[in-house]
Amino acid sequence: MKRIMIDREKCDGCLNCTIACISAHQEGSNFYTADLTGKTADSRNKIYFKEKEGYFPIFCRHCDEPECVMSCMSGALSKDSISGLVNYDADKCGSCLMCVMNCPYGVMKPDQTNTKMIKCDFCQDLTEGPSCVKACPKEAITVQEV
């Protein structure tokens, strides 16, 4: 399967990946027009910063044994046996938040209304792959076969 590999040393905290993710999930928006403050301004990735230690880019791992899927009681989260991706079907989601509780890496979060989950979809509908990866000027995140 493919995974977004992270080289934390290269990250410069510019948050381009964050804007890219928000924009990719706002119909018709681009880097110029992405709404970064509204109700849909949710990024699936998260960059932490610690003084002295630098940046900690967090991107969904589409785990081999995904805890989020294990905790999903509605069938909304599933691991695709062919692509290996952990997919989320918002229509099925019952908003129980157990995936948020169980992702050991704190990747998952609810949307701003706490009704649906914000989950990396690997930008599967885009031929060029994940938008965050494309937007990273430092190649700190790259898609690789694992």
Binding site: R3, I4, M5, I6, R8, Y48, K50, F56, I58, R61, C63, D64, P104, Y105, G106, Q144, V146
Partner: peptide
């Protein structure tokens, strides 16, 4: 406390660890 305080990446397959 945040996950970043326990951040670790498996170098081979890129999975996270705590």
């Amino acid at each position: 406390i945040k996950y970043s305080d326990f951040y670790a990446v498996n170098e081979k397959n890129g999975s996270f660890e705590v």
